[in-house]
Design a protein around this nucleic acid. Structure first.
Length: 446
RNA sequence: CGGGGCGUAGCGCAGCCUGGUAGCGCAUCUGCUUUGGGAGCAGAGGGCCGGAGGUUCGAAUCCUCUCGCCCCGACCA
């Protein structure tokens, strides 16, 4: 993409309403525009990152054997009356009447609808296990939306639902989700720690929240410092292997890590050596639940077992806050100049800064680098504006592309361009072809 | 939902107390000069001051109502 042809309305000054860094930078980098309280338009660059995050979520869900589908945002109240949640959910649910006076709602979550789909089409234990998920907009009419996309009223969420024949199988689904989530967050450059949590209105016995440590987080967290060192890495995982998946979960949930809701000082002090006890704040970027037959029983979602008996299926639900992740990633990765995108989610793989637009040699060198990167399947952003170097650098720093190739007459005289890491600020001079090769190398396998 | 605050040009703000026909910086457009970290000079365009009533000869400014947004707290898969 050429910046002169792109829509990137960057702001030089901080918008008054933005209090936290991710909100400020998302507005300043031209990623979002507020439409009303807690509701945002996603401008091209914000939308690009959003889609990138979605894609990672999809890929990791597919790897775990889960199936994508899409359910409507507007749902009939009838199903919600059946589960009893139409009255129980409260003011957070946006209620609407259609022209026929029928009660409708904007879905805050989809247990009812997915259960309805399941009971209509599945009747045998042979069809299990089954895990269906979607990435769809949700609406929760929060009394006080804030922090930009971190706590909006409308937000994009991945919500998944597993259906299993018994509790053991459902707990395997739970574990499978935990592992797939760990991998998902790691690919985005995040350290998200699973913490034992409260089940809240969804109900159920087992639930973990995934927290990204950040000083602006809404939850207070207590943890063993060693938990932040755990890494899934590229290890091979067979998601159908119950023992292997359970072992990974054990590895990641044995060390103490809890939110203030479930924090137990006695256990904390008993199990965590004093020098490793950490108290901080975290951003909740996902949660997984096992809730058994809470919805399948009242809604009649049953399967026949091998012995011909009809039993309610065991279910769980699993969410990732996709739009919130943008905020969380920025909170976890920025400096005083702007965003620093991890390679896994960056909107463009690298920036090309032409220091002297209009100079025949510099223009030609930039075009050649642009073409070479594009030919390799990479997506560069070429700042071809007729602007001064300082402005181009400031823009690149703000929007946070992890790598920058700087091209100017001075370097070209010696046959070199500059390759700069946004994260470390370190620069290296090398011939254009080598710079291109280095970028290609960096993104191999990401 | 309780408490506090703010709506004036695309963004950031001043003017309001003490009514007299709207201003600054950045951005935008034109021209010239510049060109390795948000350039300089000269010129130009852009706002019925959130909305509706009221007081007044006259309202951005005073009064009433209303809408929107932000902050702290409560709330929150």
């Amino acid at each position: 993409m050429r910046l002169s042809r792109y829509f990137l309305p960057v702001l030089k000054e901080n918008p008054a309403e933005a209090q936290i860094v991710s909100h400020r930078y998302m507005l300043r980098a031209g990623m979002i525009k507020q439409a009303s309280a807690g509701i945002y338009s996603w401008l091209p660059m914000g939308y690009k990152v959003l889609r990138r995050i979605e894609q990672i979520v999809h890929e990791e869900q597919a790897r775990a054997g889960h199936l994508a589908l899409l359910m409507p945002t507007i749902q009939s109240a009838d199903l919600w009356r059946e589960s009893g949640r139409y009255d129980a959910y409260g003011e957070e649910m946006l209620r609407i009447k259609d022209r026929g006076g029928r009660d409708m709602l904007f879905s805050p979550t989809a247990e009812e609808l997915i259960t309805d789909i399941f009971r209509a089409h599945v009747g045998s234990y042979k069809d299990l296990p089954l895990t269906l998920y979607q990435i769809q907009w949700k609406f929760r009419d929060e009394t006080r939306p804030r922090f930009g996309v971190m706590r909006g009223r409308e937000f994009l969420m991945k919500d998944g639902y597993n259906f299993d024949v018994d509790k053991d199988a459902a707990l395997h689904a739970y574990n499978r989700h935990m592992v797939s989530y760990l991998r998902t967050y790691e690919r985005m450059g995040l350290t998200a720690i699973p913490m034992r949590a409260d089940s809240g209105p969804i109900g159920g016995d087992d639930t973990h929240e995934f927290l990204v440590l950040a000083s602006t987080g809404e939850s207070e967290v207590f943890y063993d410092e060693a938990v932040t060192q755990l890494k899934l890495g590229h290890r091979d995982i067979d998601y159908t292997d119950r023992a292997q998946v359970a072992a990974v979960c054990k590895e990641f949930t044995t060390l103490y890590a809890r939110t203030d809701e479930t924090h137990d000082p006695a256990i904390y002090e008993r199990d965590v050596p004093a020098e490793r006890r950490k108290v901080g704040r975290g951003i909740e970027v996902g949660q997984i639940f096992y809730f058994g037959t809470k919805y399948s029983e009242p809604m009649g979602a049953t399967v026949q077992t091998a012995s011909g008996e009809k039993v309610p299926v065991h279910m769980g639900s699993h969410g990732i806050g996709v739009s919130r992740l943008l905020g969380a990633i920025i909170e976890a990765s920025h400096d005083d100049k702007g965003i620093i995108w991890p390679e896994g989610v960056t909107p463009f793989h690298c920036g090309i800064v032409n220091l002297k637009q209009g100079d025949a040699e510099a223009d030609a060198a930039c075009e050649a680098i642009y073409a070479a990167l594009t030919a390799l399947g990479l997506d560069p952003l070429y700042d071809d504006r007729d602007a001064r170097a300082g402005e181009k650098f400031a823009t690149m720093d703000l929007i946070g592309l992890p790598w920058r190739i700087t091209v100017g007459p001075r370097g070209l005289k010696n046959g070199v361009v500059e390759l700069t890491s946004r994260r470390t600020g370190e620069s290296e001079e090398l011939p254009p072809e080598q710079a291109v090769a280095r970028i290609a190398e960096i993104y191999k396998g990401i």
